[in-house]
Amino acid sequence: MLGPSSSFNPKSPSASVADGVAAGMSVSPGRRERPPQPCAPPGLEEALSALGLEGEREYAGDIFAEVMVCRALPGRALPRTVTPEMRALVVDWLVQVHEYLGLAGDTLYLAVHLLDSYLRAGRVRLRRLQLLGVACLFLACKMEECVLPEPASLCLLSAGSFSRAELLRAERRILSRLDFRLHHPGPLLCLGLLAALAGSRPQVVLLATYFLELSLLEAEAAEWEPGRRAAAALSLAHRVLDGADSRPEPALYSPAELDPLEPCMVRAALRGPAPGRAAVFLKYARPQRQGTSLAAALLLRHPQPGPP
């Protein structure tokens, strides 16, 4: 009989899969061709347990490899007809709809991922950008949520600018263009894993979640791997709260890899509730999120010298 403790053995074959060395059935063919990736760090099984995934300790290495090295979207970000501002406007509205409907965090990241994938795969009529966005959210709900929002209520939330039939047609079109490849482990799980590994305080995690969500508004963020994006948000949150020298351990990415991602998060956090880009800021200003966005703007303007 194998007790639960035996799967803690760090030499178990599945834990080494992230190095790409294990052979045979334990490695999927797709994984071999992936670029060099951060190795599964020690303490991964415990980190998974902290996330309520203790049943997956056996496959910890696989899960880690899968979520951390999930590839970013390739190629040019937006079709010429869609400017970053238009995309931001739609994403900002999706953030509001997502919050209003009380959906899971992953659903929002998947919706924006689907939107970006669709925009990369071809052209889109500008008038239909909002319809496209909400259809992506609807599809993301079908992937992630137990209870689906009513299509009629989604139409209502867009002030009736399209009908239910149009929404369902848009859904079919997205499925067809993306060839049903909707599965995407988003950066939110990466953030949870990294924060559990680093033992980050809840306050740091909340701030990092805010930074990560701000990055949704940036078209260029789709080109960053989810793991790197989450690591950048976490590293930034640590430095904002605990002083310039603090970085989360273990450092899976070098500062050189993370630093280019941070300016856009800092910029967005300092911008505050700009018209058309206010949703994330306002969402994190609410008391249930401890006014994180207000505190972040303050701390970024007047950096704290060291840990409190």
Partner: peptide, 13 residues
């Protein structure tokens, strides 16, 4: 939130 987004207004020309 119950709004029709006007991406047109963001169009440069």
């Amino acid at each position: 939130m119950g709004q029709e987004l006007c991406t047109k207004s963001l169009q440069p020309g």
